[in-house]
Design a protein around this nucleic acid. Structure first.
Length: 858
RNA sequence: GGGCGGUUAGCUCAGUGGUAGAGCAUCGGCUUUACACGCCGGGUGUCGCAGGUUCGAGCCCUGCACCGCCCACCA
């Protein structure tokens, strides 16, 4: 055993209170969790820790999943791996912008100049103050720094064995440098490209969003049956085509009707024109296989753009663009007639459309319905339905599709290799792989990676401005990698003077920032020092473990695999451990928006960090787990029991000597099996099972084993018996403490410090061989003694409890013939623990044992 | 529509083809020299449903139902 024992020093009254503060201070002083980079890659276990979003406070879900990671980290550290366990803060992006806006009462206005003396008011004013982009970013940095301090305090209190010297922020310099350098390499390799195209767009945040950030929400809506006039024919029955739509307000954006090529009803119309109602615009009737004869009237209106199917039709049928919705969601002003939009009746179109100008989609819809009713083009009443509508996951209003210039990162051409990487990656639990494959197979287009926002990593790109003032997007100017990170809105490209910004023959900055996942997808590179510290990177990359929750498989996990493939042609990590959610007793995810959040700090203070960790570690990998303070209380009881049992074992630890008693030897043999199985299960990331089994063993150790040997260890049967018990107890205590150390780091460290030197968290993980060494190997006959004695003990306890008054004899049902032989070697311990005077095999029935109860004690 | 997971005691959940389990809750007993933040004990089950394989199924196979989640072009 590598652990060195020191003189035993026991507290009179052990307590859990204050252990978090005490040991956090000591661990920090001693550098217990400091990463030592001198080790080779094979001796290192590296973790790509999730950087929590710094936008308010951590919640119980964080505590849950980060505990899982910490258990693994502590296990691997005790197994002898040097653990690279950094912590990042995801302070980049929209959540921070929103929080800063609310916290300080400001809005970012990029057109304003920087004001170096700006200070936010004490309280956020009712009317938001407009500030420049640099001022806004200063406030973002200020608030995230405060939040990060609070987060670190909570993480330390919870007992995460992070090396707090290894922290990064996704808005920090290193992260920006990595993000920009990786982007420039993609650009150089043709994997990143720019395109002006219809893009999913949030009208409130006024930014493009990616497929990965979509979510469907069931919304009320209505089918509107609307008639289009056949061009050239008289406006009478039989000369109309009826379509159904949920978005009648987009009639002015209609560019065609479409039906299935085989649909007999509409086949005669293909190639002909129809006239839109109200706006009197001739549009062609087209055929496309995507049109579903079963839906609505079987013929649909194509608008630019009502949904993603419109985009497909528009592209594949080479249709024109008639966009009506602006980036802010309002209908834009349009001039009809000569020089403007085409119409058979420009005057009427103008009168109708002017009533929509500057309205939102919802208001415009009501207005159009009113106009259609007046014109008689609405057939019947709108038919209310609920249907799924695409939303930005952080947004409040449905997404629109707006044409804009955006940066894309290629994903479609990597699909096959990404599926292979998904096979190669070891998933815990295994079935989570399906979600990844589902997502990769469902990819609809390349990754739109630019955002029209402020607090993020800027694209490190400028564009030349021609003598006519036009921007040459096809030939972006890029900085040398050594200059990174840069902000193109303040930095000047090489070969240009600052005064040439936005001037003819000068340069213009790319105005966008990167999608937050374009930075987060590089966390292994950021944390591992990809560009800054190649030596470190070689020792930690590819990493061993990516822990994360299942809701961000399609975003964080997917994009990280993608970027590692594009840059390094390999997986970013060997394993991924997927955590479930914390759900309330109604099976609802606990989250801020649901209003069922519990403050983690209060829980940690009430139940102790070890108690809360016990609950968290009871949740199996990948499984949603019920929030359960009861389990935290159980965890706290376990921690308390550990203190007291250890005190008992250590309070009279001498004499010590050979472990000769069968009960002692049986206990250690069983413990060796537990150690062996626990090790294998933790290697397989099955932390919940190990906790469950170890704790079961420990309670039996306390309630059965310690009770059985108590009398002997006090010396009632001589020094040799006491020595055997004492020595066995210490071997068991040492191993059990270490098995529980990853789960209950505070109480195990406390107990360890009573009699061992050094931190238990740097002690060697127990082995079966180590536990068996003092008894010269596994002892199967002693195991039989242990089982028989425990069974008989349970019988005696039951019978004694049932019979309220003292009796002469009791008959047990632990009644196998082998019980007698099994019990005999431990009979002194057994009789002492049960207060039975003597043990005899009676002839009542050869399969039964009879005990004679002692007289009532005086 | 496709996929994944779940369904075991009042609650939360283990369960590895071989006599259905734990903790909590509940009830009863115990001031036993580590621990009353403790100890001992009791009651509580059509293992979602229906078939099949097997000497034997909570577990393996097939189908179904319900719950939850992921994905999907959702006029």
């Amino acid at each position: 055993m590598p652990e060195r024992q020191q003189p035993i020093s026991l507290p009179d009254k052990p307590a859990l209170e204050g252990l978090e503060a005490k040991w956090n201070t000591r661990w920090e002083e001693l550098g217990t969790y400091r990463f030592d980079r001198r080790y080779e890659r094979s001796a290192i276990y590296s973790i790509d820790t999730p950087p929590p979003t710094v936008s308010g406070s951590l919640h119980i879900g964080h505590v849950f999943s980060y505990t899982h990671t910490d258990v693994i980290a502590r296990f691997q550290r005790m197994r002898g791996r040097e653990v690279f366990y950094p912590m990042g803060w995801d302070d980049n992006g929209l959540p921070t912008e929103r929080r800063v806006q609310n916290y300080y009462g400001v809005r970012c206005d990029p057109s304003l100049p920087y004001d170096p003396s700006f200070q936010p008011p004490e309280k956020p004013p009712k009317q938001a103050i407009s500030v420049s982009r640099p001022n806004f970013i200063e406030l973002c940095n200020r608030l995230t720094a405060e939040d990060e301090k609070a987060f670190e305090h909570l993480w330390r209190y919870l007992g995460l064995s992070v090396d707090w010297g290894l922290t990064y922020a996704t808005i920090g310099r290193a992260a920006q440098r990595v993000s920009q350098a990786a982007f420039l390499r993609l650009l150089k390799n043709g994997i990143a490209y720019q395109l002006e195209a219809p893009t999913l767009w949030d009208i409130d945040f006024r930014t493009a969003v990616a497929q990965a950030e979509l979510e469907d929400r069931e919304q009320p809506g209505a089918y509107h049956r609307i008639r289009f006039t056949l061009a050239g024919g008289p406006a009478e029955a039989g000369h109309y085509v009826e379509i159904e739509t949920t978005r009648p307000e987009l009639i002015p954006a209609c560019v065609a009707l479409v039906a299935h090529p085989d649909d007999e009803r509409y086949r005669p119309l293909f190639g002909k024109d129809v006239i839109t109602p109200l706006f009197r615009v001739p549009v062609p009737v087209k055929a496309h296989a995507l049109a579903d004869p079963e839906k609505g009237s079987g013929i649909a209106m194509i608008c630019t753009f009502g949904d993603l199917t419109d985009v497909t039709w528009w592209r594949e049928l080479s249709l024109p663009v008639r966009a009506v919705i602006q980036p802010n969601g309002a209908f834009r002003p349009i001039a009809w007639g000569s020089g403007g939009w085409e119409s058979r009746d420009a005057g009427a179109a103008q009168v109708a459309y002017d009533q929509l100008t500057n309205l939102s989609a919802v208001k415009a819809r009501a207005k159009v319905v009113e106009l259609l009713q007046q014109s008689g083009d609405l057939i019947g009443d709108p038919k209310p339905i609920t249907h799924p509508v695409k939303f930005y996951e952080k947004g409040d209003r449905p997404l629109e599709i707006i044409t804009s210039r955006q940066w894309f990162i290629k994903t479609m051409e990597f699909r096959d290799v990404l599926l292979e990487r998904g096979q190669e990656l070891q998933w815990h639990p295994e079935y989570m792989r399906h979600r990844y494959e589902n997502w990769v197979n469902g990819l609809a287009g390349d990754w739109c990676a630019s955002r029209q926002r402020f607090f993020g990593v800027p694209f490190p790109v400028w564009y030349p401005i021609g003598s006519d003032g036009s921007r040459d997007y096809a030939h972006p100017i890029v900085p040398d990698e050594s200059r990174l990170p840069i902000d193109p809105s303040t930095d000047t490209p090489d070969g240009y003077a600052a005064g040439q910004r936005d001037q003819p023959n000068g340069f213009a900055a790319d105005p966008d920032v990167m999608d937050t996942w374009a930075t987060s997808s590089l966390t292994p590179q950021i944390a591992g020092g990809w560009l800054e510290d190649p030596d470190l990177f070689g020792r930690v990359f590819p990493m061993d473990l990516r822990p994360q929750a299942h809701d961000i498989i399609r975003t964080w996990l997917f994009t990280t695999v993608l970027r590692a493939e594009q840059e390094h042609h390999q997986l970013p990590w060997a394993h991924t451990a997927i955590s479930g959610f914390v759900v309330d007793p109604d099976r609802k995810k606990m989250s801020k928006s649901k209003g069922n959040v519990i403050t983690p700090m209060a829980l940690l203070e009430e139940h102790g960090s070890d108690g809360v960790r016990y609950w968290a570690a009871s949740g199996r990998a990948g499984t949603d787990t019920t929030f359960d303070p009861g389990q935290m209380k159980v965890g706290r009881r376990l921690a308390m029991k550990l203190l007291n049992a250890a005190r008992f074992a250590l309070m009279q630890a001498d004499p010590r000597g050979a472990i000769t008693e069968p009960l002692d030897r049986g206990m250690l043999t069983a413990l060796a099996t537990l150690v062996e199985e626990s090790t294998a299960q933790l290697e397989a990331y099955d932390y919940a099972r190990v906790l469950e089994r170890t704790q079961t063993f420990f309670w039996a150790f306390c309630d059965d084993y310690l009770e059985l040997v108590k009398s002997r260890r006090y010396g009632d049967f001589g020094p040799e018996g006491a020595a055997s018990a004492n020595s066995a107890m210490l071997v068991a205590l040492s191993a059990l403490l270490r098995l529980l150390a990853p789960y209950l780091p505070f109480v195990t460290e406390e107990v360890w410090s009573w009699w061992q030197s050094g931190s238990i968290h740097r002690a060697t993980w127990p082995t079966a061989a180590e536990v068996l060494q003092p008894i010269g190997g596994s002892d199967q006959s002693a195991l039989t003694v242990r089982e028989a004695t425990q069974a008989a003990l349970a019988d005696v306890r039951r019978i004694k409890s049932m019979l309220k008054k003292p009796v002469k004899a009791v008959i047990t049902t632990a009644a196998l013939p082998r019980t007698f032989e099994g019990l005999t070697p431990a009979q002194r311990d057994f009789l002492a623990a049960t207060h039975i005077r003597n043990l005899r095999f009676d002839d009542v029935d050869e399969s039964q044992l009879v005990f004679e109860e002692e007289q009532q004690r005086s």
